[in-house]
Design a protein around this nucleic acid. Sequence first.
DNA 1: CGGCCGATCAGCT
DNA 2: GCTGATCGGCCGA
Length: 220
Amino acid sequence: MPPTTARRLTRSFFAIGSERLARRLLGQRLVRVLPDGERLSGLIVETEAYVGPKDQASHARNGRRTPRNEAMYAQAGTAYVYSIYGMHVCLNIVCGRLDEPVAVLVRGLEPSEGIERMKEAFPAPRPPHELTRGPAMLCKAMRITKAHNGLDLVNSGELFLEEGRAIANPSIRRTPRIGIDYAGGWALRPLRWLVAGHPSVSGKRGYGKAKMEPADRSIR
DNA sequence: CGGCCGATCAGCT
DNA sequence: GCTGATCGGCCGA
């Protein structure tokens, strides 16, 4: 269980750009407080950086700005929640200056608090690590919906982040991002960060098909 | 275990 | 009209 003194992550934590935030979010705690007060939470074990208008995998590629992706242009610490494939939603954390569309997609959590409640979101029984493995799955387990799009994660009482556990560089890997084969050369850039060997990292055998590289130590 | 494919619809063109 | 920052079931090896 987390200490009751857990520190809330502040605006300045998020406002560092997507590559640095993707690294720094690993091990931090994502918290959802349900209407009845129950806490659901997990430690982040997989992220992807979306690096701006030039990034051909980003919803903001070539400066696209529509009602759907408007939250990407908001201040750092804003949630960008979008729907995909007609049946899922995914959560990003916005991390640039105002009007600069950069964000980090949260792709995997190690479930921590409220595991029994998370299980209720799925029709069939499954082990804890498969409650929050993948960007859409973790939103389903954590009851994150499009109603949270545009929410300020720095001030919200229902969805926010807390200081978690440090992850040492040797156990971190970078790979290309998942599901963006349409993005040309951008599909190959190592903008996905993961905790090596963690069971809640998405993809087959926990890694997907992507070839892994050691984490870039210059990115903190 | 790995590969294929259907579900299902918001959002854009 | 087409596509997607996904998931899970089914099938063959």
